Amino acid sequence: MSNIDLDICFDARELRNALGRFATGIAVVMAQDEEGLLGVTVNSFSAVSLDPPLVSFCMARTLSSLRRLEAATSYSVNILLEHQSEISHRFSRPGTDKFANIAWEIGPSGAPRLKHIHACFECVPYAHYDGGDHVIFVGRVVHLLAEGDDRPLLFYRGRYHRLHPTPP
């Protein structure tokens, strides 16, 4: 392949709007270190590999707790249920006590994890990659929890959405 220099013919808002046309689930990434608990909402979660079991998510370089998350020895990726948009909002805002009145526990990996969610992937760090204005995290799944048949919280075109029931 040749390395072609093309001019970008769109701005950041146009790119964000176009990317918003891809529906995603909503997750909360959680970790704990000597400074305490940390958690942040993401919609960039993705499967990477089954063997070894790898998942990924991205974090903005402007995130105040980025350094702490990069140094974490374990973390959890918690997939939210369709009625948990308030949890998503809470963990997307800086400076709030995100863990107050939230049901959570320490998982087998040592990472904090939410209770009563769609699924949880507890991970140990596998790799970090440069992703422009983001850092790409790849975690090796060491424990998972996926129970029940409830529906996930979805994000599409800048808003939360719910899956419609499938007719029988």
Results as ranks from 00 to 15, higher is better:
D133N: 11
G148Q: 03
I102S: 13
I117F: 08
T96A: 05
V135S: 05
K98S: 10
A60S: 13
A71E: 15
N3I: 13
I87G: 00
F99T: 04
R21P: 04
H143C: 04
R93I: 09
A103P: 05
L144R: 04
L145W: 05
F137G: 06
L81W: 02
L38N: 06
G95V: 01
L69F: 15
I106H: 01
Y156I: 03
D130H: 11
I79E: 02
Y160Q: 04
V55S: 09
P168K: 11
F57M: 05
S65L: 06
S65Q: 11
E70V: 06
G139N: 05
I79C: 05
A60G: 14
H89K: 08
L163N: 00
S65V: 01
V135W: 04
V135T: 15
E86N: 00
R13K: 15
F10G: 02
L37V: 09
Y75W: 15
T41Y: 01
D7Y: 02
A71S: 14
R90G: 06
N78L: 08
Y156N: 07
R157Q: 14
Y160N: 02
F99V: 05
S109V: 00
R140D: 02
L54Q: 05
Y156W: 14
V55R: 08
D97E: 07
V77N: 02
H118K: 09
F91P: 04
A31D: 14
A18V: 15
D5R: 12
L144Q: 11
L69H: 06
A111Y: 03
P125Y: 01
S88I: 04
R61T: 15
E34W: 07
L153N: 00
C9R: 15
A31N: 09
L19N: 11
L19S: 08
Q84C: 05
S74D: 11
G36F: 05
W104Y: 12
C123Q: 11
R21L: 07
T24S: 13
T96L: 12
F91K: 02
P165Y: 03
M30Q: 12
R140L: 07
F137A: 06
D7N: 10
R68F: 04
V40T: 13
R67Q: 14
R13D: 13
P52Y: 05
L37N: 09
L38C: 14
S46Q: 13
G158N: 03
Y75L: 10
F10S: 10
